[in-house]
Design a protein around this nucleic acid. Structure first.
Lengths: 156, 156
DNA sequence: CTTTTTGTTCGGTTTGTTCCGAACTAATAA
DNA sequence: TTATTAGTTCGGAACAAACCGAACAAAAAG
């Protein structure tokens, strides 16, 4: 399926995954509710058992996928974690928070240097102010959206 | 300077740069208006001329840095591109747009499958709807901030 | 108890990235 | 003209990531 490859390439870049890991996730997404098994992926993705095993566990550790089981069936049926959107949003906000902290530290350092530097070589701090303002705005708007999505989710 | 290393590690992850490329950018950021020269970086970052040359050109291609010159001086003085914030925002919006397109394509595919699939194994499309709603909201709020920053910039 | 199913773990190969040194270029200086 | 400055380009070494196969484990089936 070409869509697995296309989505795979996208996920490889977006989620920073190894090629096969990205294809696994793509395949699981496109298989949906009925779930994908270990063997399905070995055959369909043409990868070794060890590769599938490793990446499947990795994706599980990252909370990207979960699995369900069937009584009297030893197979695991992998499906995407429905909270992935929220994890994605939370990761994004965490990164923004880290970036904000770095900018604050840089600004602090530059202010210290500025106090002993000649006038025309002083650091321009508006850069950091702009950036922090941008992050604050982006964070709050995304957080608002997160809440909105949480409420929608409770509805059904 | 420890801050170069700390910022370097951050940029390595954030901007997807090679270790030395990230340190170059960090050093240029922390040097500020007076600019950093090729030789400065070779000595201070303890890297070979070839490495510095390659990464410097790469960073220039990515529009992360620019340089100014001084009359009667062959050296180039590298400083960060003041439009970096805007490039960053634009890249972010571009990525969101791509993601949005992928979700639309997935939704289309799933709708086609749903029309021939048994009731209890139909794809749940709310996932994509939520995601698209999230991206639309995030995009518009970030775009708003971009405009606000543009106006601030014109003020000074 | 042996075989099959459903995986996991380990060692090694392949592939790709990052960096360096040496040789080169183009411009200025002596 | 020769030397120095300020870089670029190329080939390869060193390292890291991704993947595979073979051997192993644990549970169920025969």
């Amino acid at each position: 399926m070409g869509l697995v490859e296309k989505l795979g390439v996208h996920l490889e870049d977006r989620e920073q995954l190894a090629p096969v890991a990205a294809r696994i996730l793509a395949y699981i997404i496109l298989t949906g509710k009925k779930g994908s098994t270990f063997d399905d992926m070995v055959t369909i993705l043409c990868a070794s058992k060890s590769t599938i095993s490793t990446h499947l566990n990795h994706l599980k550790d990252l909370h990207k996928i979960v699995y369900f089981t069937k009584t009297g069936d030893r197979k695991k049926y992998f499906i995407i974690n429905r909270d992935m959107v929220f994890h994605h949003i939370d990761d994004m906000m965490q990164k923004w928070k880290e970036e904000r902290d770095i900018h604050l530290e840089l600004k602090e350092y530059k202010e210290k240097i500025n106090s002993i530097e000649s006038e025309n070589e002083k650091f321009d701090l508006t850069f950091h102010d702009d950036y922090i303002k941008f992050i604050d705005g982006a964070t709050s708007s995304v957080e608002e959206l997160r809440n909105k999505l949480t409420n929608n989710k409770l509805d059904f």
